[in-house]
């Protein structure tokens, strides 16, 4: 009852001994994620929290533990290589939390992933959570609740805001996915919409976009053509000025393209119920599903 991750997820954490990696590896374990291995070059043979074996390479981690999903918390300078390593070693679902990978690096990473048949979530994303089963990334587990609404978003904390609204109003989620705020990402809205459409345990979908690029417009077309489940949408950045980067590397209106209003219009035309504010999600989900 989920997409991308579930109770069969066996996670290897790349950068498990770093500040962010160790904190979130702990949080993920506490949530119930099956963290089977960690990777930090030079610390092979040690254990994380006295239990999780640490390896020098992802290849060794897979060989010893059967890890099938990777979470990357290594610093930006090494993150692209960590993605290459995970894909080359045979991981099929890679979640890159790290922010700050140069976009030129990503133009080399993405075709490599395609050749290896691997899916990348991110970079610069909060990861994914299937409530009650598995969490890969940094989404706070306590704000989620198992249920039948799929959530996909370009943002981190804005996703938490929306998911929290759902949860406190008794609406659970199948999987919540943060696809990341960078201009070049491995998994886009369409990939998630397609997965949610095919997931028998997802009954309705919430998509949260923002200014910059045309992914939301393409997603709108996909909803019109291929998605039969109800979709509720939000676009952040209606008040953002053109030509200025709004925090996320990908959140920039170039010329007259990538504005919130053009994205909202495209979603409306595709039959998506568009929220005027995050709190509207509850009412719209109730109304449309």
């Amino acid at each position: 009852m989920s997409i991308f991750i579930d109770k069969n997820t066996k996670l290897v954490v790349q950068g498990i001994t770093g500040r962010d990696g160790s904190f979130h590896a702990s949080q993920m374990r506490e949530y119930g994620t099956n963290v089977v291995a960690g990777v930090t070059p030079g610390k092979g043979g040690q254990r994380f929290e006295d239990e999780v074996p640490i390896f020098n390479t992802v290849g060794e981690a897979i060989e010893s533990t059967g890890a099938n999903v990777a979470a990357i918390y290594v610093p930006a300078a090494f993150a692209a290589d960590a993605v290459f390593e995970a894909a080359a070693a045979g991981i099929m679902f890679i979640v890159c939390i790290t922010e700050g990978i140069p976009v030129l690096e990503m133009t080399r990473v993405l075709p490599f992933l395609k050749e290896h048949g691997a899916r990348l979530l991110g970079p610069n994303c909060p990861g994914a959570i299937t409530p009650g089963e598995s969490k890969v990334g940094i989404i706070p587990g306590q704000i989620c609740k198992a249920g039948n609404v799929g959530v996909v978003s370009r943002s981190g904390t804005l996703t938490y805001e929306v998911v929290n609204q759902l949860t406190v109003n008794g609406i659970g989620q199948s999987t919540c996915v943060g696809i990341g705020g960078d201009p070049l990402i491995g998994t886009n809205f369409i990939d998630c919409l397609e997965a949610f459409q095919n997931d028998p345990h997802t009954d309705a979908i919430v998509m949260i976009g923002e200014i910059g690029g045309t992914d939301e417009q393409k997603a709108a077309q996909f909803v019109a053509d291929k998605v039969s489940k109800p979709v509720v949408g939000f676009i952040a950045g209606q008040t953002a000025p053109p030509g200025r980067r709004m925090g996320h590397a990908g959140a920039i209106i170039s010329g007259s393209s990538g504005t919130a209003s053009e994205k909202m219009q495209a979603l409306k035309e595709a039959g998506v119920a568009v929220m005027s504010r995050p709190a509207d999600v509850v009412e719209l989900i109730k109304e449309h599903s």
Binding site: T157, G181, G237, Q238, G247
Partner: peptide, 26 residues
């Protein structure tokens, strides 16, 4: 990023920061 209005906003996360600006306007 400085804008022209009068409600100063301090937020964690870029998406929530934009959504907060939008809600001020709303």
């Amino acid at each position: 990023v400085k804008l022209e209005g009068n409600v100063g906003c301090c937020v964690n996360g870029a998406g929530l920061a934009m959504a907060t600006m939008d809600l001020v306007k709303y």
